[in-house]
């Protein structure tokens, strides 16, 4: 057994925990589900340490793992496994703020809901995780060209859905402050 594994894993865990929990919380309806998915994602990462790329690539790889775990979770294939009240509570904190409930946002969410899962995921990786095309390609195991084309189509479908939902944008549309990291 390779003795440096626990240390290396711990380093990756600390480095990526914030991003992975954010990714999962943005896609899970409840903190309990999020706790299951986060736990399973890192458990798989630990078991597949040998496949985990070094450096920044590890984050992208983990997004890919989390995505598959989420899909499996939605199919009911992930058992409830790693439940600790503290983990639930910490993730519940992320759900605590009452979301911005302006009508406009509800309409955007609805429009988004009409898109295929793949479109939504692509768009979310850009909008929420802030990934660029190359990073998305790595995360999803696609070529950059495939990402470019799919993203183009997904954006077009989103625009159409938004138009149908009556959402319009003006220059004054509120923009979320970019990139505040801690």
């Amino acid at each position: 057994m390779d003795d440096e594994r626990p240390a290396r894993f711990e380093a990756v865990y600390r480095e990526t925990y914030g991003q992975i929990t954010a990714y999962v919380a943005r896609r899970c309806g409840s903190p309990q589900d999020a706790a299951d998915v986060v736990a399973e994602t890192f458990a798989i990462a630990w078991r597949r340490m040998d496949d985990m790329p070094p450096g920044q690539q590890a984050t992208l790889w983990l997004y890919g793992v989390a995505r598959k775990v989420l899909a499996a979770h939605r199919r009911g294939e992930v058992r409830r496994q790693a439940r600790s009240a503290e983990l639930d509570a910490e993730l519940a904190d992320l759900y605590g703020d009452s979301p911005d409930s302006r009508v406009e946002l509800g309409a955007i969410a609805q429009a988004l809901g009409t898109l295929p899962d793949d479109d939504r995921e692509l768009l979310a990786l850009v909008a929420w995780e802030g990934l660029d095309r190359a990073e998305i390609a790595t995360t999803l195991g696609l070529s950059r060209n495939a990402v470019r084309i799919r993203l183009y189509r997904a954006r077009r479908r989103l625009s159409r859905a938004l138009a149908e939902a009556g959402v319009r944008f003006t220059a004054e549309s509120r923009l979320v402050p970019a990139e505040r990291t801690s």
Binding site: G18, P99, D100, V126, W128, L158, A161, S182
Partner: peptide, 22 residues
Amino acid sequence: IDGIEAMRPLARVEPGKPGGRP
């Protein structure tokens, strides 16, 4: 300002911010 920009406020964890603390 397009659909992607419009999606950002929907994120439960604000884009660019970490979720949980390790």
